[in-house]
Design a binder for these strands. Structure first.
Length: 507
RNA sequence: GGGGCUGUAGCUCAGCCGGAUAGAGCGACGGUUUCCUAAACCGUAGGUCGUGGGUUCGAGUCCCGCCAGCCCCGCCA
């Protein structure tokens, strides 16, 4: 306990160092310290010219939390936003815009993202219905991919427009990401196919170039192919994903030199990644001892158990969803303040509502085992009791209240800590589990384990708070209890921080 | 047709790679406030772990069959 109080890392060893000794001294059993291998977390990944929706929310929140945990453990983490900024869709969109809104392709800010989404929809409809349009669109893709300046400029404008919109969301959620879209891998696609050919994996089938998968059979018992070059000579997303894997594991400067690559996408892509991973492995692109992992998550469903939609049947925009969470939170806070006769500044109310609202959205998502579908409910996530963000944040607030009224805790007190009550021991036991939980999350990539731990910690703390006096305790017990409070607060703040959730002093 | 995921209390979910009487929250019912924010705490009721077999000293957990829901399956990403 004493060593934890003096340790800003709360007993979690940093990978690749000998801090495991410190962990052992405090009685933890984290096991051998992993080397500080470079890790890539590929997450969020929205598509240009489309709006972010709840599907991106899960990837963004889970990916960010995993990246934070891995960073905290001492790994150099590259957070990659593999945005959909390449491919047939741009042929469609640019062709359509050239005809109906050419200014959008030459002038910045001529259209906003909402317009783009509408244009995209129109373009897609024409593409599906009109063969001539389809041909023109495909030609446009070829022009873009071969670097035609007019196409290139149009593409850049579209990307910038979308990028600003995405960034607003990321800023709001405090998410750091490096954009490296599909287009980045364009120069490597030829080499990928050449490599596969050289290793004898490439097979010409039905006009397309494929690699046939081992152990996976499709219709009529034929092996399932991964198509890396289409009949028309173009590449597709599998080629891009392969190029990305190859680049990410390749040593610098021709690559990222990663030793663990993590993809946070919906579970629907599981078989796609399984196929692509197998091809990459057989091509010899994955160094021995490296980990290549798909971190799948389930669908976000409405309370009816179906895919989440607005009342009018549209997909829910992420921005609207976050707004509503904050608005509901603010309304609830104002009602509560009125009931309690508390007067708080507008700034306080806005700050608390924003923090709690966004925390609730994040926590609701992270606290579930990601592999299952997840039922989205404002009422449940904003509930003040139960396994929710407000409950955890409230525990932190209670401790802050003690600190305000009880002064500072002496960090290097000569007095040995003394505990007598079962509630104290329960809290001690829970606090000492923190490092093992972090190690488990690092290994299993399941943020809900950390959530469950923090919820239990809050419960144990609330019991302690309710049943054991702190400030009114006799001097020696008081010091020990204040130390428990401080370590509880530190653990909650650090743990929530690793989930991307900031805490409050008052709420 | 092939493959994947899921099925645990009325509801939403845990259950950490088999180990003791299956856990939590919500909801229901009943309590607690001259005291550090009651956004809390305490208690009661509620489950043949989808189903049928098998492996094991021991299965919610592993294997097989079946049923139900969702998702994926050659040139979209």
């Amino acid at each position: 306990m004493a060593s934890r109080l003096a340790d800003p890392r709360l007993g979690v060893p940093r990978a690749g160092t000998s801090e495991a000794l410190a962990g052992a001294a405090s009685g933890s059993e984290v096991g051998p310290v992993a080397p500080a291998d470079p890790v890539i977390v590929d997450f969020s990944s929205p598509n240009i010219a489309k709006e972010m929706h709840v599907g991106h929310l899960r990837s963004t929140i889970i990916g960010d939390a995993l990246a934070r945990v891995l960073e905290f453990r001492g790994h150099p983490v590259l957070r990659l936003n593999h945005v959909g900024d390449w491919g047939t869709q741009f042929g469609m969109l640019i062709t359509h815009l050239k005809q109906v809104a050419p200014q959008a392709l030459t002038t910045a800010d001529a259209v906003d993202l909402g317009d783009l989404v509408a244009f995209y929809r129109q373009a897609k409809a024409r593409f599906d219905a009109d063969e001539a349009f389809q041909t023109t669109a495909r030609e446009e893709v070829v022009r873009l991919q071969s670097g035609d300046p007019v196409s290139r400029r149009a593409w850049q404008l579209l990307c910038e427009q979308s990028r600003r919109e995405f960034q607003a969301i990321y800023d709001r959620l405090d998410i750091r990401l490096n954009e490296r879209g599909e287009s980045f891998y364009n120069p490597y696609l030829e080499a990928v196919v050449a490599d596969l050919d050289a290793s004898g994996l490439l097979v010409q089938d039905d006009g397309a170039q494929c690699v046939f998968l081992e152990g996976v059979s499709g219709k009529e018992g034929k092996p399932l192919p991964v198509i890396v070059r289409k009949t028309d000579g173009g590449f597709n997303y599998a080629t891009t994903d392969l190029a990305a894997i190859r680049y990410r594991f390749a040593d610098s400067p021709a690559g990222d030199g990663a030793r663990r690559v993590i993809y946070v996408t919906d579970a629907g892509q599981a078989s796609h990644f399984a196929g692509v991973f197998q091809v990459a492995r057989r091509a010899g692109w994955i160094p021995a001892g490296s980990r290549l992992e798909h971190v799948p998550f389930g669908l976000v469903q409405g309370e009816d158990g179906k895919k989440l939609k607005t009342r009018s049947g549209d997909t829910v925009r992420l921005k609207d969803l976050l707004d509503e969470a904050v608005e509901r939170c603010e309304a609830d806070l104002r009602r509560r303040l009125a009931e309690e006769g508390r007067a708080e500044s507008e700034e306080f109310i806005r700050h608390v509502a924003t923090t709690v609202g966004l925390a609730a959205v994040k926590y609701a998502d992270l606290s579930q085992n990601r592999t299952t579908n997840y039922q989205f409910s404002f009422d449940r996530m904003l509930a003040l009791q139960g396994n929710t963000a407000p409950y955890l944040l409230y525990a932190v607030v209670r401790i802050a209240g003690i600190a305000r009224k009880g002064g500072d805790v002496v960090t290097d007190s000569d007095q040995p800590l003394q505990f007598s009550e079962p509630q104290e021991w329960a809290l001690v036991r829970q606090l000492l589990d923190f490092d093992a939980v972090i190690a488990a999350v690092e290994d299993e990539l399941l943020p809900n384990r950390l959530c469950a731990y923090l919820f239990e910690l809050s419960q144990v703390f609330n019991r302690f708070y309710d049943q054991v006096p702190v400030l009114k305790a006799p001097p020696q017990a008081r010091e020990s209890r204040l130390a428990l409070c401080r370590l509880s607060a530190d653990t909650l703040k650090l743990g929530l921080g690793l989930l991307g959730i900031p805490t409050l002093e008052r709420m």
